[in-house]
């Protein structure tokens, strides 16, 4: 059985479930909204990076991306939905690849849009820093934002397949992204630079002072996402549905 029908089915699954279809839209809205809020806050740190100031909303937008990735997979673990899915696509590796591609592509598109919207908001809001990012930086930021969102959604998707629970995945990832990474991420030049979110967010800054550059940072996040997906695929293939 070819891959395309399985992918089409997974794409339809996202489109026809309101809570999932709203996920990518939430990524765009949350990212843009929080960039605007942060821009309005005049008292924000003066040492702010011009590009990151325009993409600040990603810090919260990624929560929407992670939630989307987790929900897309966790919907399979309720009421025997996975059994029905696998009875139609018994090749489990292929099924999970189709799922991941549908989730990743949706999150990528949402991330690119979120990046554009966020930059536009950053320029439009009067309180934004003088200068702001230049076009080259802005383009890099948008692409980086898209790839970063896609990778975070996939990281969550893989983790959810491994844990077989969206609630468990989110109760690990959300506090991690909002609290742990914020606290220990303040220091650079440590192993914390290689955390999935910290590494990937280098691309959202004009300048980086850590060991990782914009693209190597995204590569590190990609390794995290790939590891989570591999673990998830292993779980899907090995365990009883």
């Amino acid at each position: 059985m070819p891959f395309a029908p399985a992918l089409h089915s997974e794409w339809l699954k996202i489109r026809t479930l309101p809570s999932l279809a709203a996920g990518p839209a939430a990524v765009v809205l949350v990212t843009a909204a929080f960039t605007a809020l942060a821009g309005l806050d005049e008292s924000a740190g003066a040492d702010s990076d011009p590009l990151f100031a325009s993409l600040f909303g990603v810090v919260l937008g990624q929560i929407a991306a992670v939630t989307f990735g987790a929900q897309a997979v966790s919907a399979e673990f309720r009421g025997g939905a996975l059994r029905l899915s696998l009875s139609a696509v018994p090749h489990r590796g292929r099924w999970f690849a189709a799922k991941a591609l549908a989730v990743g592509a949706s999150a990528l598109a949402a991330g690119l849009l979120a990046g554009c919207a966020s930059l536009a908001v950053g320029w439009a809001v009067p309180g934004s820093r003088a200068g702001g990012p230049n076009w080259g930086e802005g383009l890099r930021g948008v692409v980086g934002c898209g790839v970063y969102m896609a990778l975070m959604a996939l990281f969550a998707a893989g983790l959810t397949a491994l844990l077989r629970s969206g609630v468990m995945t989110l109760s690990i990832l959300v506090p991690f992204l909002l609290v742990v990474s914020f606290v220990i991420g303040g220091v650079s030049g440590t192993a914390a630079d290689y955390l999935p979110d910290k590494a990937g967010q280098v691309v959202l800054h004009s300048t980086s002072d850590g060991a990782l550059g914009p693209w190597t940072g995204l590569a590190v996040t990609a390794v995290w996402a790939a590891a989570a997906l591999a673990a998830g695929a292993w779980s899907v293939r090995r365990r009883d549905a």
Binding site: L12, T16, L17, P18, G79, G80, A81, R83, L84, S87
Partner: peptide, 14 residues
């Protein structure tokens, strides 16, 4: 197999 396999938020046709 499972009556609960259809997601409650989807329409039957979808």
């Amino acid at each position: 197999l499972d009556t609960g396999a259809a997601h409650g938020s989807r329409t039957a046709r979808d």
